[in-house]
Computed example of a mutant assay.
Amino acid sequence: MNARASADKRPPGTTVRPQRTTALVSRLMGMETEYATLAVDPQNLSSEDLPASLFVYEQICEAIRRDQPTAKGLFDSEQMFLASGGAVTFESNPAMHDLPGGLIEIATPEVRSPEELLTCQRSIDQLVADATAESETSYDLRVLKNKL
């Protein structure tokens, strides 16, 4: 019997498994966040005079397009994909496109770690805030983070 076998306290026939140095399964993760849109109304306009939700969405998307490369969705022409792999979608029923307000949903790209996901989430928060501030309209547009 060699020295290694005598020091080993495992029962005979037991195999030694190497310690795992990588994750068992690599998973992709991403998040979708809704942002409510609104126009600040310092002139006390009637609801008919406020910008339609589709107009607000288009203005925000146009500001994003001026900042980075994008591509339209194949099956939804209102959807926009970002160079990062994220996506911007207008969340509305077509019957509500002409009404004020609305929701924009922005998805992060798919990533492999919580740290990357948090970085991407903070990036899209800043992206939508900047795009709203830089939209070329006479309205004072705002977005509110509707969900995490």
Rank of each mutant, 00 (worst) to 15 (best):
T137V: 12
E48C: 07
M96I: 05
K147M: 12
S6A: 15
E134P: 03
S53I: 02
E115G: 13
K147R: 05
D125F: 00
S77K: 14
R20F: 04
R122C: 15
P42G: 07
P42Y: 05
A5C: 06
S92Y: 06
S123C: 07
E91H: 01
L99T: 08
A71L: 09
S84H: 00
Q79Y: 02
S77V: 04
D140L: 14
M96N: 15
E134R: 13
M1G: 11
A23V: 15
R4G: 11
R10S: 14
V111Q: 00
L148R: 10
V111D: 05
Q59C: 11
E134S: 13
T33E: 10
E115A: 13
L127A: 01
K9C: 09
A129F: 04
T137P: 07
Q121P: 06
T37L: 08
S26I: 09
M31G: 03
P94D: 09
Y35E: 00
P94Q: 00
E105V: 02
N93W: 04
R4Y: 13
S47K: 12
D8K: 04
P42F: 05
T89S: 04
S84Q: 03
E78S: 08
Q43Y: 06
L74P: 08
T137D: 09
I64N: 00
G85L: 02
V16N: 09
A52N: 03
V111I: 05
S138L: 07
E78I: 03
K147D: 12
D98Q: 13
T15D: 09
K145W: 03
R4A: 15
D49L: 07
L127I: 02
A63C: 04
R4E: 15
D130N: 09
G13R: 11
A23C: 05
C120F: 08
D125K: 03
T15L: 14
M29T: 09
L74H: 07
S47C: 06
I64W: 01
T21M: 09
T119K: 14
E34Y: 03
T21D: 10
H97W: 10
A95V: 08
S92A: 15
